Amino acid sequence: MPYLEIISPVLPAETKQRIAHGVTDAVVTAFDVKPATVTVFFLPVEGHDYAHAGLPGYDDGRPVRILIKVHAYRRDVDARRRAAAAITTAFHDACAPMVTDTAVYFFDRNLDEVAHDGMLASDHAHA
């Protein structure tokens, strides 16, 4: 943990590789974690599965809104601020010029709200 879910249009493999590298570096720097703790999930959404402002699809020239969810142990506001800026920059750099509207949402968790392999993270802290 941290885990990132990137909900976006279908992206080419080389773009996803650039994104994975960039957002991992962003999280590592902002949260002071090791790269081995960061996992990125790409959740592609086809045009018929997307609507913004009540209008479906991607094909009319409107900016496509990208949602990046960050699931992580609770961090202070400055760390989240750094992460939001760095993740957005990394994502945009990897996708330029096709992406202009990115939202980053943080889903902060306490250690007792996360389990890996059936054991609460808070239990690992005491083991």
Rank of each mutant, 00 (worst) to 15 (best):
Met1Lys: 00
Pro2Ser: 00
Tyr3Arg: 01
Tyr3Glu: 05
Leu4Gln: 04
Leu4Cys: 02
Glu5Arg: 03
Glu5Cys: 01
Ile6Gly: 06
Ile6Tyr: 15
Ser8Gln: 01
Pro9Phe: 14
Pro9Ala: 07
Pro12Trp: 10
Pro12Gly: 06
Glu14Asp: 15
Glu14Tyr: 11
Glu14Trp: 10
Thr15His: 13
Thr15Lys: 11
Thr15Cys: 09
Gln17Asp: 15
Arg18Ser: 11
Arg18Ile: 04
Ala20Arg: 06
Val23Cys: 05
Thr24Asn: 08
Thr24His: 11
Ala26Trp: 14
Ala26Arg: 04
Ala26Lys: 04
Val27Leu: 15
Val28Trp: 14
Val28Gln: 03
Thr29Asn: 06
Ala30Cys: 09
Phe31Asn: 01
Phe31Val: 00
Phe31Lys: 00
Phe31Pro: 02
Asp32Trp: 12
Val33Thr: 11
Val33Cys: 15
Lys34Phe: 12
Lys34Met: 08
Val38Gln: 09
Thr39Leu: 12
Pro44Gly: 05
Pro44Met: 09
Pro44Trp: 15
Val45Met: 13
Val45Pro: 07
Glu46Phe: 06
Gly47Ser: 14
His48Lys: 02
His48Arg: 05
His48Val: 06
Tyr50Trp: 12
Tyr50Lys: 00
Ala51Glu: 09
His52Val: 07
Leu55Asp: 11
Leu55Tyr: 14
Pro56Ala: 10
Pro56Gln: 09
Pro56Gly: 05
Asp59Thr: 02
Asp60Thr: 02
Gly61Arg: 03
Gly61Met: 04
Pro63Glu: 09
Pro63Met: 02
Val64Lys: 04
Arg65Ile: 04
Ile66Trp: 11
Ile66Glu: 05
Ile66Tyr: 13
Leu67Gln: 06
Leu67Ala: 02
Ile68Asn: 01
Ile68Cys: 02
Lys69Val: 06
Lys69Trp: 15
Val70Glu: 03
His71Cys: 03
Arg74Met: 07
Arg74Ser: 12
Arg75Lys: 15
Asp76Glu: 13
Asp76Cys: 04
Val77Pro: 03
Val77Tyr: 10
Asp78Phe: 12
Asp78His: 12
Asp78Pro: 02
Ala79Trp: 13
Ala79Val: 04
Arg80Glu: 14
Arg80Cys: 11
Arg81Leu: 08
Ala83Trp: 15
Ile87Gln: 04
Thr88Gly: 08
Thr88Lys: 03
His92Val: 14
Asp93Leu: 07
Asp93Arg: 06
Cys95Glu: 15
Met98Ile: 12
Met98Gly: 07
Thr100His: 13
Asp101Lys: 00
Asp101Trp: 12
Ala103Asp: 12
Tyr105Arg: 01
Tyr105Ile: 05
Tyr105Leu: 08
Phe106Asn: 01
Phe107Gly: 00
Asp108Trp: 11
Arg109Lys: 08
Asp112Ile: 00
Glu113Cys: 03
Glu113Lys: 01
Val114Ser: 02
Ala115Met: 07
Gly118Ala: 00
Met119Phe: 01
Ala121Cys: 02
Ala121Gln: 05
Ser122Glu: 06
Asp123Cys: 00
His124Lys: 04
His124Val: 08
His124Asn: 03
